[in-house]
């Protein structure tokens, strides 16, 4: 089977075409943000100010990298647990965020916002940070540098492997995949 490469930022059409369980490779520009950056972004919106990055069509990678060694764009760069971003994600999805990359289950509120906005939730392999770092060709801190690993990074990625765990219709791989391999 040939590799399915998906361009990021993600078009509405591409988002709709991705189905739960699909294994795809993301190429283009994405942004990293995790706990502290999400908290700041929501506080910024609460004050009526503009976000430091555009949401429309973009994909956020829930990731805080380890420091880069000399000559490398980034250190280890695998996904963190998405659930901690659940209180913030629906607001960002309503602003046009089209994809999230992380690991683990999401709340109903997030699922509703995914469906409402035709977005997608991808899983990257947790604990494969060295491997995933090879798909990141450039990394630049674009907001909140004082947060260190939790700063927002703009990332140029080439063929970053990701599995669709929640598609735009709200189908959830975490809910269905387990049953097939359950034994009593």
């Amino acid at each position: 089977m040939s590799k399915r490469i998906v361009s990021v930022p993600l078009s509405k059409e591409d988002a709709k075409s991705l189905k739960v369980g699909d294994y795809v490779y993301l190429t283009g520009t994405i942004y990293s943000a995790r706990d502290a950056a999400h908290k700041r972004m929501i506080e910024t919106l609460d004050r009526g100010e503009a976000l430091p990055i555009e949401m429309e069509g973009n994909v956020i990678y829930y990731m805080g990298p380890s420091p880069a060694r000399e000559g490398r764009p980034i250190g280890s760069a695998g996904p963190t647990t998405s659930g901690r971003m659940d209180p913030y994600a629906p607001t960002l999805l309503d602003l046009g965020l089209r994809g999230m990359i992380g690991k683990g289950k999401r709340t109903k509120e997030v699922k509703d916002a995914v469906v409402r906005n035709g977005a997608v939730y991808f899983a990257a392999v947790g604990g494969a940070g060295a491997l995933l770092s090879h798909c990141i060709k450039e990394a630049e801190v674009v907001a909140y540098p004082e947060l260190g690993p939790e700063a927002i990074h703009k990332l140029e990625v080439v063929e970053l492997p990701a599995i669709i765990v929640m598609d735009s219709e709200g189908n959830d791989l975490y809910e269905t995949a387990t049953k097939q391999y359950q034994r009593d």
Partner: peptide, 28 residues
Amino acid sequence: SPLGKQVLDSLSENLELAGKEMIPICQD
């Protein structure tokens, strides 16, 4: 599981790369 096998393959590849290139196994 084919997908499970693919994940485990990635983890083995990741381990090998981590030691060879001195990139932490996991960013955490």
